[in-house]
Design a protein around this nucleic acid. Structure first.
Lengths: 353, 353
DNA sequence: TTGAAAGCGCTAACAT
DNA sequence: ATGTTAGCGCTTTCAA
């Protein structure tokens, strides 16, 4: 294949407009010290010739790469993709990120990195060296991986930590998991539930703990007990099954359960069916994530929507602006909303009365 | 922010190994004319220093960008993302593509392009100039857009046309829509259905026609009529609703309907419910796409799975290999499979007996 | 089989 | 406000 060169370069534009390369460069980058008349003339040449700067060349000359890297956990991402069970995290992340990138003339690229590997640094370091992104978006569980965070900080690359509120380098961002969980719990309490079980996510994710906190907080505020009412899962269906079985076998059976993922909550629905419990008659269910599938279960699940796209979009904006504006020091909170559907109702009988 | 330079460059490696830049370059690119001993020595330096070539620099010097661009229709992609109705096309495309890219040291980037715009060429041209990808994957409806195809051909960039079998530049690829549709129809005929309705996709997609062809072919092979049994939709739920209503209002009511998308088939299920028709008792349903949501309807839908990930993966491989091997001239066919679920059964009563 | 020189398209730093 | 010069890190000539 023929060596592919740029069709129209900055040189052509400079020649066409009768100015120096530098002036064209200044116009492209919207830099000061160019008279309006000049600017207009150059811009006309650019438009006429259909000139678009080569990103490779821009990066080469020590400038920007116009690239934001979104880093996901390899195993989890591939597993979710293979399972094809409706997780739309990647979709939400990509679209939310790329559209905002596009608004600023940037692009987003998704990269998979293995958290559990001992050569994370090599893997990530290679991506950084090869791509030289202008910013990186870290998603859980990478967001709190010290190897990754430190590497990014050492390279002086702006980055956002989604699902982390720890102080430290990078922009901490959360979807207000504690508040969300609290709100979900309050919703159930208002309906009259008093024994509310909780299926938490794995310990490797900070947000698992925050959600537990929110639930406990709401329960405590109403003087309700939480002992024995919390089980751990790994976000997957199977783990939801066993967690739900334990909770529903409790002497004081919960009249409502909050699941920390759609898969686990769907599993709980399944267990309820096994036990001949009607939902929401005997058992109310609130889910987390609000992936598309929860609208198709019977009943459809009330779920707390995770504003993934908005969060990534916001992260991208902050990262790009980081060139000029210092990024926020305090954690950035992007809140979701509770979407009420058929799986929640007043408890049929107040078992705890 | 400080000007960010490459930490370890080819120069460092050359110095460390005591050879010229060129020799290092040859090792990196696995080129001939390097003695094994030399190769080993250089490789050791590379490993020791943790050297990774800068893609920007590689591209600059007229070599590869190690980038494959996957181009989607902007409106449709954004609409699907917003609707959040379970379409996992982007997910399947991205993962299938990026993993295969990674195997070859390439990356995949998703780009949205507006088909209906009159400045497609400008839009795509800009992306090509800025990114200089080594290959492009075109998805429907772009795959047969002459403006796009010609532009790519003119730029001499290898590209694949997913969902196109037209001769012409680029690698034509299909998921065997005609065969799939035929197989779905055969499945219903074998169950005993004789009046089988079909909800087609929009005319802008070639595959809409191929699926109609497959259905007609199978029907004809068994001497069954197709007149009035085909309605058009636009792949969306609403269009499925009206198409289904028309089909189910026919004097000779179909005992089975094939929908060209999950949304349209789900809509048909909804209409069946309105009309008090039991599925699959009174009406069997076969869908196309097999997105995650079809497993959660009641009953779960029998669906023809679209091997999107495999197809994109294959496209990427062919594109990357195109540097050395001439790409296939004939259309590349990647076949999917029919996934049987609860929405298909023998017709309860043979209405047409 | 190896190396030296030139240049890709752009921007930073320094003139003017 | 504009132009000139010197690279960025790599590959492509071309030479030895």
């Amino acid at each position: 294949m023929a060596r592919r060169r740029q069709a129209v370069t900055i040189k052509h534009v400079a020649a066409d407009a009768g100015v120096s390369l530098q002036t064209v460069s200044r116009v492209i980058n919207n830099e000061p010290n160019v008279r309006d008349a000049m600017k207009t003339r150059v811009q006309e040449s650019i438009d006429r010739l259909g000139y678009v700067p080569s990103i490779a060349a821009q990066r080469m000359s020590g400038s920007r790469s116009y690239l934001i890297l979104a880093i996901n956990d390899r195993d989890r991402t591939i597993a979710d993709w293979r399972a094809r069970q409706g997780s739309d995290w990647v979709d939400q992340m990509l679209l939310g990120g790329m559209l905002t990138c596009a608004e600023h003339g940037y692009r987003m690229m998704v990269e998979l990195v293995d958290t559990h590997s001992d050569h994370v640094e090599r893997e990530l370091g290679a991506a950084l060296a090869a791509l030289q992104p202008d910013g990186v978006v870290l998603t859980p569980p990478h967001s709190e991986n010290p190897l990754i965070v430190d590497l990014l900080a050492a390279h002086d690359i702006p980055f956002a930590r989604i699902g982390s509120i720890k102080p430290g380098p990078g922009i901490a961002m959360t979807m207000d998991d504690e508040g969300a969980s609290e709100q979900a719990t309050e919703h159930l309490i208002k309906l009259g539930h008093r024994t509310i079980g909780f299926i938490a996510g794995p310990a490797g994710y900070s947000l698992s703990g925050w959600r537990i906190d929110g639930w406990k907080k709401a329960m405590a505020a109403h003087g309700l007990p939480t002992t024995d009412l919390c089980e751990r899962g790994d976000f997957g269906f199977q783990s939801g099954l066993s967690a739900a079985r334990k909770l529903l076998a409790l002497p004081q059976r919960p009249t409502a359960i909050i699941g920390s993922s759609d898969q686990m909550t769907l599993a709980t629905l399944e267990v309820a069916r096994e036990l001949d419990l009607s939902v929401p008659g005997d058992l109310s269910l609130v889910s987390f994530d609000n992936t598309p599938i929860v609208r198709f279960s019977d009943p459809a699940l009330t779920a707390f929507d995770q504003p993934i796209a908005q969060t990534i979009s916001q992260a991208v904006s902050l990262l790009i602006e980081a060139r000029n504006v210092p990024p926020p020091a305090a954690p950035v909170v992007v809140s979701g909303t509770l979407v009420e559907r058929g799986s929640t109702a007043r408890p049929r009988v107040d078992v705890n009365a």
